[in-house]
Write a protein that binds this DNA or RNA. Structure first.
Lengths: 238, 238
DNA sequence: ACCTGAACACCGTTCAAGT
DNA sequence: ACCTGAACACCGTTCAAGT
């Protein structure tokens, strides 16, 4: 009875409402807590009701990815392809930081969603307008890989695993555990090396934003050099 | 009775035998078919028997990753850090091509396994021996990201999804579906651009090995340039 | 002391029964 | 015709009962 009244008070189900609730659930409780049953409960609805708006869980995930990608700021008009692409990729990274589950979700799905395709199409259009051949633009897109969507792509990226953002893990230990440090001395050494010249600042973890921009600029600078040299595939990067 | 005889004929369970069977199961049937129950059945054993050798499924996955990483060829002695690192990364890629599920598995686990740490330690040692500062080596490892383990890191990488290797998908369609091509003309254009100068060869998909080496060399060349310039973090790549 | 069948608490999804 | 509770075929893991 009370439950029925609750249900009636709610807005009618819609695909958009389902997707927004799913994104919120994944953000708050982690992607591993996203089940059709949990999602239905959050919406005050019986699980089967979801299936009228999404075909199955995979399609739900595709929809959630579209929601996230649509949050990427539109491009700013910019004279230089390099600034334009760099700025939009950093904007994409900000979005993915808000939705830590999204990077892995995008990589594990195999279909490109419409929002992702539109985003990638803008990147290619910007390169082409900047004087890139279709051939070079093709290889550049491969080389950027998922970094073009702001993925950190680190080998061990804490933030991309179990969702639970914020409060629970205040400070992940920066270095290796002592016994691992002894076995892998070179890793231990660079784990200590801080992001800045001040060598006395050690063991306080990595500056993720710095590392992302470092890698992004390394790629963009190399790409710029190829483009200025009128690169074609017969001449390898060398 | 017959089942008991079968079981007795088998070698006794061991962590190694379990891990090898798990890798084989994931290779053949796909990672989504890897359940404790299926694995136990393959081994002719009751599911609970596995728990004496692996604590839980996550630890099983860690062990499987270790098996895969140990398959990477040992480094060849090489005078140049660049050739040594490049060669070993391409060897890692060959291993990951044999185990398509492994890339995503490594990215979704958060603990570095001993085999991965040993591999990374070798890469760092090679860089340091080649004259890299600890600081630059640190940033380089971040910039390489999971590419150091041979990941393609493509945004949409067919091979990394559902395992089922070989026979079932003879030829993935190279270009976009027609209606998508109309909406995303720039993507359609570069999807047509083949890997080689011969512009008449279109729509036959991508040369994955070429694209991987293109991106790898782009990174390695940029890294070499930084190292030769005595890069420090006060001077950004620029 | 060891092993393991049954059980628990979940899944995504189907389907037939009820309105 | 529409909606949905129960059921199906799975999970990973616990635990107590049996040897």
């Amino acid at each position: 009875m009370a439950e029925q009244a609750e249900t009636l008070r709610r807005a009618p189900l819609s695909r958009g409402r389902i997707l927004r609730a799913a994104v919120a659930l994944a953000d708050e409780a982690g992607i591993e807590s996203l089940s059709m049953r949990n999602l239905a409960q959050d919406l005050g609805v019986v699980p089967m009701a979801l299936y009228k708006h999404v075909a199955n869980k995979d399609e739900l995930l595709d929809g959630m990815i579209d929601v996230v990608v649509s949050e990427i700021d539109p491009p700013l008009p910019d004279a230089s392809w390099k600034h334009a692409v760099r700025g939009r990729i950093l904007a994409a990274r900000q979005v993915l930081l808000r939705h830590p589950w999204a990077a892995l979700a995008i990589e594990s799905r195999n279909m490109a969603t419409p929002a992702i395709l539109a985003y990638l199409d803008w990147v290619v259009a910007t390169l082409r307008a900047g004087g890139f051949s279709a051939n070079l633009a093709h290889h550049v897109m491969h080389a950027m890989g998922s970094r073009v969507l702001g993925f950190s792509q680190e080998l061990f990226d804490e933030s991309r695993r179990a969702g639970r953002s914020g409060t629970t893990n205040p400070e992940p230990p920066a270095g290796l555990p002592p016994e691992a440090a002894a076995r892998f001395p070179h890793l231990a050494e660079i784990a200590m090396a801080a992001s800045h010249d001040d060598e006395s600042v050690v063991g306080q973890g990595c500056d993720d934003q710095f590392e992302f921009e470092f890698a992004l600029d390394l790629l963009l600078d190399g790409i710029e050099r190829l483009q200025q040299q009128d690169w074609t595939s017969s001449r390898r990067p060398r």
